[in-house]
Simulated assay, not measured.
Amino acid sequence: MPYIAVRISKTVSAAQVQQLASGITDIMTDTLCKQRSLVAVSIESIPASHWFVASQNMAELQNTTAFVSGIITEGTNTEAEKSHAIAAIFALLTEVLGVLAEASYIVLDCVPATNWGYSGKTQANRKATGEKS
């Protein structure tokens, strides 16, 4: 049940948005073994002139960068799985967007099962009652 927010420092086409959403969903499903029907992805374009690295905006640097923030339940994936997912997401971003600035970040926040859930139930509650999460 991950939620992944993607921010990109340039305008992207509808086809690129779909490619990123599908690719990230596949990575969450295949690499991190998440339930496909619960993978949520949002993608936002931010004007390059509003994104700064080292106090310079991406428009001046003529660079593209991205920030991907994913939330998953703590203890559900190994370090190797998370490392593989981060590498796969970066590869997907470069495939879809082209060369990215070094300051392109991917974060997987591992949140305790008691602190998040869906449909009004925490992941801890689902586990305690034997429900699939």
Rank of each mutant, 00 (worst) to 15 (best):
G70L: 04
G130E: 02
G70S: 08
A80H: 12
M58R: 04
D109Y: 14
D30K: 12
S42G: 08
Q19P: 03
T114C: 14
I106K: 06
L92M: 12
A40Q: 13
Q56C: 10
T78G: 11
A40H: 13
V53F: 01
A91W: 07
I86T: 09
E44P: 02
P2M: 01
K82F: 05
V99A: 13
I46G: 06
Q35H: 11
S45F: 01
A91C: 06
I71P: 00
W116H: 04
A113L: 08
K132P: 01
S49Q: 10
L20A: 05
T64W: 02
Q16K: 07
S37P: 12
S13G: 14
E79H: 15
A113Y: 08
N115F: 11
S37H: 15
I43Y: 04
V68Q: 02
I8V: 12
S104F: 02
V39Y: 04
V12C: 11
L61N: 05
R126V: 04
S83P: 05
C110W: 00
A5Y: 05
A80R: 15
V6E: 00
S13L: 09
A15K: 13
Q18T: 13
I71R: 07
V99L: 07
D30G: 07
I106H: 06
V6T: 09
A54N: 10
N57M: 08
G75I: 02
T31E: 11
L92A: 09
I8T: 05
Q35L: 09
Q18S: 12
V53L: 05
C33K: 14
A91V: 07
S133D: 01
I89Y: 00
S83F: 08
T114P: 04
A88Y: 07
K127T: 08
T64S: 11
A14M: 11
R7Q: 15
L20G: 05
D109Q: 13
E74Q: 13
Q18K: 14
C110P: 01
E44Y: 01
L97V: 03
A15R: 10
A40P: 02
Y105W: 08
Y118K: 09
T78A: 10
V41L: 00
S55M: 06
S49A: 13
A5C: 12
L20T: 03
Y3N: 11
T94D: 04
S37N: 15
T114S: 15
T29D: 13
S45C: 06
E74R: 00
I106R: 06
W116I: 01
K132W: 01
S119K: 14
Q123W: 01
N63Y: 02
Q62R: 15
T114R: 14
L97N: 01
